[in-house]
Write a protein that binds this DNA or RNA. Structure first.
Length: 591
RNA sequence: GGAGUUGUAGCUCAGUUUGGUUAGAGCGUCUGCCUGUCACGCAGAAGGCCGCGAGUUCGAGUCUCGUCAACUCCGCCA
């Protein structure tokens, strides 16, 4: 099928083109046939241009134009002229193209759903016909932002002396942390590669090789359950630097975010970005990635309630737990049903119950008021800065759980009361620092590396390694924006002796270490510079920049919540012969 | 692994609480009319395995059980 190639796109025609003879290529967006006079909007990724067919000008052409239907691919030749009725709502709204010739390049099947901007269909259909969904300008905008971001990343890191190096996608499986995706080896039957959860080990090795400053925009893979902000394959901006300390990484990263927000959104973000410790984040916001666009801090109440007659509080105090609260300003107007919903929500995070206190007309309305003394109630009011009309939610449990519950309720309350809506155009960055090096797992009764086992402990806490490993802080840092973790990193251990101590503490045997990380341990013995780095979540960054709360909007071909790609039908069955070739056909025997 | 929400026309949804004649609307599609629209308008028509499978019942879109899928969340995500 021959067509006349465009000499302009659908977004560029402005009044200065009036009189030009132009050719447009694109999709017919809408066709408005007024009975003779026909308007056709032609769309491509650059914009929409109105084409007009006039019978008095060319009756045969106008008659033929009736064949054009929505989503047909066409070429149109015509003369640019000013519109008699301009449309101020579109960039090209001052002009129109009077058609002198056209051709239908491709007729479209009936689209299974309207692809016009602003019309949302079910996720299932959008993903099955992803190519149609991606025709929507609204979605294309997000990929234009994503592309802008790629350019800034390369420009910024390149100008700061970073080398981009590609690391392997087929690598050794290291079953610590997330589940690996495995790839069978045909040449070495019965053995498997893994897809990288991150290029962590390779970038450390590049430092040992003397690359000094490395970066890569890299796909990472984790075989874990999906969420609205989690896909099994996602993209990181991976960075590593030598002969540096934490401040250098933070500096470089802050410079990056300043530039991104300036270039893409035209917003100056504070530099330096504020920092809070992990302990403070947990204590005040019940989260290691607090959303600081609004207040609603958590208030600790043990002190004033330690002699309470209330059995629930007594038990928590006795077991060294925590009683704490948040104050939902003006929340007293919430209905009993809405309060029950909060309780239900809290239970998802392991709460056994949730106490509430409404303060209306100078009175207290609360199921637990009868168990508390006036003094205790005043204590709660004072510590929550209660004003008339407020609602205080009190949780009491093991310290960590109380904080997690209130942290979750804080966010939920912000969503339900509309606070979240009022802050949606704000950007609050922060560094969370002073992470614990280890976290204790009750189930297995041992310590695990909170970040990963190559994270350096703080020198100041070395002496606690043997006595109180739980209190050792790591040289690790996360960067958080609006309650989303958009990056994290650490200073690595470059001293093999300390690395050995770490493995000891993690209860890993000599052979286990050798088997899993032997090559890194060996490499560290050949002169490792002090080094560290960070990995930034590119998809989540695009989400924030483009104002969506779903990661599927910023990945061209995403998977469903159950890990399926509805468009191409993966994962799919394969031929027995393929399995045989790979030496894994035993798995298929029972089919 | 667990919980919740949803599944009815090509698309978005109503109808399910309280089972009952021929399952509705808007958009889209098709036909006709229409020369300044821009989500054009007007008139008409076609279009349904009520996700799938069992069950209860004289009778199921509606009730029960199972199952599949999408979404959201908990667990999980060093």
């Amino acid at each position: 099928m021959s067509f006349k190639k465009r000499n302009v796109n659908c977004g560029q025609l402005l009044p200065e083109y009036v009189g030009s003879d132009v050719i447009l290529n694109g999709w017919a967006s809408t066709v408005r046939d007024l009975g003779g006079l026909i308007f056709v909007d032609i769309r491509d990724r650059y914009g929409i241009t109105q084409v007009i067919f006039e019978p008095e000008n060319n009756p045969a052409l106008a008659e033929k134009a009736k064949e054009i239907k929505s989503e047909y691919v066409v070429w149109i030749q015509g003369i640019v002229r000013l519109r008699s009725n301009p449309n101020q709502n579109m960039a090209t709204g001052l002009i129109e193209v009077l058609a002198t010739d056209f051709g239908i390049i491709n007729r479209s099947e009936l689209p299974p759903f309207p692809v016009e901007d602003g019309i949302e269909t079910s996720e299932e259909i959008k993903l099955k016909y992803r190519y149609l969904d991606l025709r929507r300008p609204e979605l294309q905008k997000k990929f234009i932002i994503r592309n802008q971001l790629y350019q800034i990343i390369h420009e910024y890191y390149n100008s700061n002396g970073f080398l981009e190096v590609e690391t392997p996608v087929l690598m050794k499986s290291t079953p610590e942390g997330a589940r690996d995706f495995l790839v069978p080896s045909r040449i070495n039957k019965g053995r498997f590669y893994a897809l990288p959860q991150s290029p962590q080990i390779f970038k450390q090795i590049l430092m040992i090789s003397g690359f000094d400053r490395y970066m890569q925009i890299v796909k990472c893979f984790r075989d874990e359950d999906l969420r609205s902000d989690r896909q099994p394959e996602f993209t990181q901006v991976d960075v590593e630097m030598s002969f540096i300390d934490m401040e250098d990484i933070i500096d470089v990263t802050e410079g990056f975010f300043v530039k991104v927000w300036q270039d893409i959104l035209g917003i100056d973000i504070p530099n330096p970005i504020r920092r809070i410790s992990y302990a403070e984040a947990m204590s005040k916001y019940g989260s290691d990635k607090p959303d600081l666009r609004f207040g609603m801090e958590i208030y600790h109440l043990n002190e004033g309630l330690e002699h309470s007659e209330f059995k629930v509080f007594q038990d928590v105090i006795a077991s060294n737990g925590l009683i704490a609260s948040i104050n939902i300003k003006g929340g007293a107007s919430l209905s009993r049903k809405q309060l029950d919903d909060f309780t239900l929500y809290a239970k998802k995070y392991g709460a056994k119950g949730l106490a509430w206190m409404k303060f209306v007309d100078g009175e207290i309305n609360s199921p637990i008021a009868k168990f508390l003394t006036e003094q205790e109630i005043n204590y709660i009011k004072r510590n929550n800065y209660v004003a008339e009309g407020d609602l205080v939610l009190i949780s009491s449990d093991k310290t960590e759980r109380t904080l997690t519950i209130l942290g979750a309720l804080r966010l939920e309350a912000a969503r339900r009361t509309g606070i979240m809506e009022t802050v949606k155009n704000k950007y609050e960055f922060l560094w969370v620092i002073d992470f614990p090096l280890f976290e204790y797992d009750d189930e297995t009764g041992r310590y695990y590396a909170m970040h990963h086992p190559f994270t350096s402990p703080m020198e100041a806490d070395f002496h606690l390694l043997d006595t109180e490993p739980g209190k050792v802080r790591a040289k690790a840092y996360d960067i958080v924006c609006n309650g989303a973790e958009i990056g994290g990193g650490s200073i690595r251990i470059h001293d093999n002796k300390i690395q050995q101590i770490m493995f000891d503490k993690l209860g890993m045997s000599e052979s286990e270490i050798e088997d899993k990380f032997g090559f890194l341990i060996k490499a560290l013995k050949f002169g490792a510079p002090p080094h560290g780095g960070i990995a930034l979540g590119l998809d989540r960054l695009v989400m924030i920049l483009s104002g969506t709360d779903n990661i599927r909007d910023v990945i061209a071909f995403p998977k469903t919540t159950s890990g399926l790609s509805l468009m191409d039908g993966s994962p799919s069955d394969v031929e027995i012969s393929q399995l045989h070739e790979l030496g894994i056909d035993l798995l298929k025997k029972n089919d």
